[in-house]
Amino acid sequence: MVYSNPVLFDKSVTIVEKFTVRQDCRKILIISAEPKEADAIQQLIDEINGQTEYELIEFNDETQLSHVNEILDQQKMGTQLYISAKWEDAVSIFAAAIEAGFSEGEIQTLISGKKKRYVYCLKCYHLQEAAAEETDIVCDHCQISLEIGPFFSRERKGYIGYPYNPAFATTN
């Protein structure tokens, strides 16, 4: 894994509310790991309308998901990837796709359920989950108060958590 590779995070450019078809590609590969999103997949296929070659791969359990690297490695240049999955599965599929050579411009990701957001404590370097709307959090490892900043690190896989002294909270 190259450190400068993109990773999936809650504000990733590849995350979409609805799939859109790109007609300028040679093939569309749909990886569906979430049966609940069958309607969205069908809508995509309807929209493709036979204009572009497509392949639908459905994963129903983790064992099948372990083959994702192999499938992605076999794809040719010009393939557009559509990922439909819950957060954790989407993260794995996305990482495998990047590793196989896909760029972010060639991927659309539809998350089923909640996206996850992580904060990196700059006092003790612990990564923890934070709710989407939270602006402050207490580090569950070192218990320091953290102000969640807008900057994300691919290396640390989270948003910056500035340690601060709550006694001076109004000025931070």
Partner: peptide
């Protein structure tokens, strides 16, 4: 540095 913001942040006042 960012790591010690809790310490030096308040001293600015």
């Amino acid at each position: 540095n960012y790591e010690t913001f809790d310490t030096w942040g308040p001293t600015r006042f």
